[in-house]
Amino acid sequence: MILHLALLVGLVLFSVLAILARDLIKSAICLAAASLLLGIIFFRMGAPYAGVFEISVVAGLITVLFILTIALTKTEGDVRESKLVRMVFPLFFVIFALIDALVMKGLLAKIPMLESAARGGTFSDVLWRERTFDLVGQIAVILAGVFAVLALFRKRDPHD
């Protein structure tokens, strides 16, 4: 229980740091740390596949992409944020934490316990047999992403 609590607190802490950090590299590393903790939580709650994806893709792959991109771009002077913007996030965070503390416990008590093991059998069964339509959607999202990159990074052809 204490370990679980520590993991959750760490998750929230690193997520907040990721938003508040001024340095983009530090921000990316904090995000990776947060998703590593989230991955461990997934493992402990009996969702190994979610844990594996969270750690390999979000903590690993995406962090590498972030850091590569940051390394490839040049810093051209600091962009100063207005004070208002800096105030907004902590304010929202406090409000959210308050609502969370007041409402969530009551809500969670009402939610019936569902069996934790996947009903449909193994991971591949669930993915291929039950959530197949999601996969079509995923393919479409990937297509949209690829076309978006092609469109936004295209060279404008003077003959067009």
């Binding site: 297509l143 949209a144 076309f147 978006a148 092609l150 469109a151 295209r154 404008r156 052809d157 067009d160």
Partner: peptide, 10 residues
């Protein structure tokens, strides 16, 4: 705008 194929794809 150019890149019509890409436009229709999106």
């Amino acid at each position: 705008y150019g890149a019509k194929a890409n436009y229709y794809a999106l």
